[in-house]
Design a protein around this nucleic acid. Structure first.
Lengths: 145, 145
DNA sequence: GACAAATGCGTGAACACGCACATATAATGC
DNA sequence: GCATTATATGTGCGTGTTCACGCATTTGTC
């Protein structure tokens, strides 16, 4: 392994993995403590909130998140039981289903998102200058193609 | 959400998450296809290989990886069944156990690591200059304190 | 129009992981 | 030396996720 990566590659890639692991643990615990939400549950609420109509197709949620379709299907099921989301048949394609944010879900998300933002800022964003954040953003943009 | 982060924060943090998700899927599939290994299994083999004696205590593996101690215990169990690792009692502390890389494990890792390196290089490292990788490494180092 | 292929979603089974606890051993205090 | 506490690991159980598959519907082809 010492041969496959040189030192600066090791720092860049290894650090990336390590930082993600650490942030992941911090966020998971933070969300759980104040909002009783899993990271993936939060992400689903986030995507729905971003959408103007507060609704998205299951497949689109899956494409943008870490989960597979079946995974999304179960998350939506949990969120539905909690009253934060409801399912609706898609009128334009009767195979399809929308996950729709409920009022309770939107409210719950609003609070969770604010606390979550503070957490991310405290543990990540605040460590960098604006220029550095821009640089980082450009790094990621380059990988998105 | 549009309020909690400004644009460059969004790019830096959102991009970070998105890139991790993408890389994670790529790596998982890559490792599975040519070496029949999970990412966490690979990581355990990696840590053991890094160690001069090819052995580590369960707790130390847990501290350095994403898993908890019990998680590591089960990964080692799987790897032991596959013949890539064997357990040995710790002579200096009879509560403890070492995971020791077998010859087969070392060989399997050697091949997997090379292919893995190519994958990481092709999908991540190659997109950046050496200076940029250094910059990135410094970013991560700043978060490790 | 009718039939085949593809697509969207849900579900049973398998499995990986964390939590809490059990067991064995070490370390500490008296 | 003995009792208590702390530590290292393994394990039963619950939960979450994927895989494989089934059902319903749409799309494409003739």
């Amino acid at each position: 392994m010492s041969k496959t990566f040189n030192e600066c590659e090791q720092n860049a890639w290894g650090g990336f993995l390590s930082v993600y692991g650490k942030m992941s643990r911090i966020i998971e615990e933070d969300l759980q403590s104040h909002s009783h939400l899993t990271h993936v549950e939060f992400e689903v609420l986030l995507r729905l909130s971003w959408n103007e109509t507060h609704q998205m197709r299951i497949q689109d949620l899956a494409a943008e998140s870490i989960l597979t379709r079946s995974g999304v299907s179960r998350v939506v099921e949990r969120l539905e039981k909690a009253g934060l989301v409801k399912r609706e048949e898609a009128p334009e394609d009767r195979r399809g289903a929308y996950a729709v944010l409920t009022e309770a879900g939107a409210e719950r998300f609003r609070i969770a998102a604010q606390k979550h933002g503070e957490c991310v800022r405290a543990n990540f964003l605040s460590k960098f200058s604006e220029d550095e954040l821009k640089t980082m953003g450009e790094f990621w943009a380059r990988l998105e193609e």
